[in-house]
Amino acid sequence: MAFITMRQAISDALREEMKRDDTVFIMGEEVGVWGGTYAVTRGFYDEFGPRRVKDTPISEMVIGGAATGAAMNGLRPVAEFMTINFAFLALDAMVNHAAKVHYMFGGQMKAPVVFRAPGGGGRQLGATHSHTPDVIFAHFPGLKVVSPSTPYDAKGLLKAAIRSDDPVLFIEHATLYQLRGEVPEGDYVVPMGVSDVKREGTDVTLVGYAQGLQVALEAAEKLAREGVSAEVVDLRSLRPLDMGPVVKSFKKTFKAVIVEEGYRSYGIGAEVAARLQEEAFDYLDAPIKRVAQFEVPLPYSRDLEQAALINVDRVIAAVKEIL
């Protein structure tokens, strides 16, 4: 067992998959000579060479489309968007092509491509570089969307994504790159579409993923000191969404707070809350609460930006409202 950062876990997964399978290659802006804007692919260019680590022009539309085309023709590209904010430019390639070709052509072709994209706010990058737009991508059947909260999940989920015959968007919350956690030696896979109980509890269910999950865990820890036992469920995958562990937990606690960094309107919380009332109506003891980003473009100034984002205090306050 090693105690490594999420950055390292993601890097290890990429390296191990590239060694295992020659059809796996990396393409994106500054992934090669530079070593990756967030240093995830540092050393890869020297290790694997330009055939397998491809620096692209600043051209998101063709990064998305060419990765999809290469996947259709037998490769397993891992295409990196420098940030998820730039993936908007590739949205058409992702949702109209990667997510559609298998269905639209009656199963004749598949597109086993992985799109990697760091995302999230909290780094004073201003309105255009701080989006958490995960739910937009998760809206479309045909694309799988995963976003890990721990180094362990990051490594296992990325391996599952690369080995999958379906297109996957792998979202990495940039503030989690330095997060450390235990990762076993050797090969393992965390299946996509499987939610995970990260902390057991009895009084309230906190649902989250990625950075929101870490906020929920910290809130649970503080609540425990006040005698409140919170169960924390990590969605890990937004599509397919595994409600099983969430519903199971809710039937035990009768109360839920959903924590997400994206906007509240039309968000993950809205989806999870809707499904909870559909699947566990008789267990509702209180309104389902949502803790999400305020509905403003994220500003640059540090305190102002932080005020718009989710935090532990807001989660605790939400829990106390329904206890």
Partner: peptide, 21 residues
């Protein structure tokens, strides 16, 4: 492909796979 121009990068990717192989 019905989105005007949308398949041109796909073609580029098909070609990339041939070059890669």
């Amino acid at each position: 492909y019905a989105v005007v121009g949308g398949h041109v990068p796909l073609a580029t990717g098909l070609a990339l796979a041939e070059q890669y192989k």
